[in-house]
Each structure stands twice: as structure tokens, then as C-alpha cells.
């Protein structure tokens, strides 16, 4: 059965996430970060930041909050039992600090089929309160046996 591509281009309601200092520290400690910029507000201020800096991969936290529910969209129709995370890319425009509000826009960038596998690519664009893009990401999910 060919993979259903009708959801290509579909966009979802954007979601806003407030970056919290303790959440940044919790994430930084979980992934083993030791850079004081992520952990110590004084060190971050001394380096010119308003508060602790989010590690680049903290983008996962504020994007997932908005994107994860969209992965279950019936029009996209991914079979979760057969799905694995195949690839991931991020482009960062600048560091994000605790206290910022980040709004993430989610869309289905592409759906293709190759060798019996479905490749579902979501694109997320995360913007700051001024509307400037801070992080762009492509999330590739691979579904076997489509």
C-alpha cells in the first residue's frame, strides 16, 4: 500500500513555551553538562547573559511540547508501533536564556516512501517574543512496513 502523502504541507497551531531557570538546570544536569553558563546565573550574567543559558539541545524540550501531539495527527497517519526516530537536524541562530518565551510553529515538510519504509519529515520553526527565528529543526521519523 503506498504511503499517504496528503498531509504534506499541513501546519498545526503554534505553541508557546516559557523557558524556566530550573528546567534549564534540570535538563543540563540530565545530559551531563558542566558549563557554568547553563547552571549558574552569576556565571551567565558575568558572561553577558540575562540568566542561565539553555544548552543548544534544550530546543528539544520547548519544541516537543508543541510538536509531539501533532505526531498523532490521523491525517499524517504514522504507525507508531513501527516508528523510529531516524534523523534530526537543528540550526541555531543564537543562545536562548531562561525567562524567554519561545513560540514553535510545526508543519509536515515531506512524506516519502523508499524500500517499504515511510519517511515523515516534520519542520519546526521556533521564534522569540520579537518574532525572530531562534531555532529551525527537521525531525525525520521512519516507519517500517508501510
Amino acid at each position: 500500500m503506498p504511503v499517504n502523502t496528503s498531509a504534506i504541507g499541513k501546519t498545526f497551531a503554534p505553541g508557546t513555551y516559557v523557558v524556566g531557570r530550573e528546567k534549564v538546570r534540570e535538563y543540563a544536569e540530565a545530559v551531563g553538562e558542566t558549563n557554568p553558563l547553563y547552571l549558574d546565573p552569576e556565571a551567565a550574567r558575568a558572561a553577558g547573559y540575562a540568566d542561565v543559558v539553555a544548552p543548544p539541545m534544550f530546543a528539544v524540550v520547548f519544541i516537543s511540547k508543541t510538536m509531539t501531539p501533532t505526531l498523532f495527527d490521523p491525517e499524517v497517519g504514522m504507525n507508531f508501533a513501527m516508528m523510529v526516530h531516524g534523523g534530526q537536524s537543528f540550526t541555531w541562530e543564537r543562545p536562548i536564556v531562561a525567562g524567554e518565551e519561545i513560540t514553535t510553529h510545526v508543519s509536515v515538510k515531506d512524506i516519502t516512501e523508499k524500500d517499504g519504509k515511510g519517511f515523515y519529515v516534520y519542520e519546526t520553526i521556533s521564534k522569540d517574543e520579537a518574532g525572530e527565528t531562534v531555532v529551525t529543526a527537521d525531525w525525520t521519523f521512519l516507519v517500517r512496513g508501510v
Binding site: V31, N35, P55, H85, Q88, T91
Partner: peptide, 29 residues
């Protein structure tokens, strides 16, 4: 997978001198 990617990002960031210098990272799991 994103924990493992975070370790790759940490290596890149630490070698690059900190988060302000990192521009992009793309991986396959």
C-alpha cells in the same frame, strides 16, 4: 536518541568554545 545526540552536541559545543558559537548539527540515528 536525543540524549545520545545531546552528547554529540556537547562535544561540538565544548570544542567550539561554548553555545554562542554553535550554528547547526545534523545526525542520523
Amino acid at each position: 536518541g536525543l540524549y545520545s545526540m545531546a552528547q554529540v552536541a556537547r562535544a561540538l559545543t565544548d570544542n567550539a568554545g561554548g553555545p554562542a558559537n554553535v550554528k547547526s548539527l545534523s545526525v542520523q540515528f
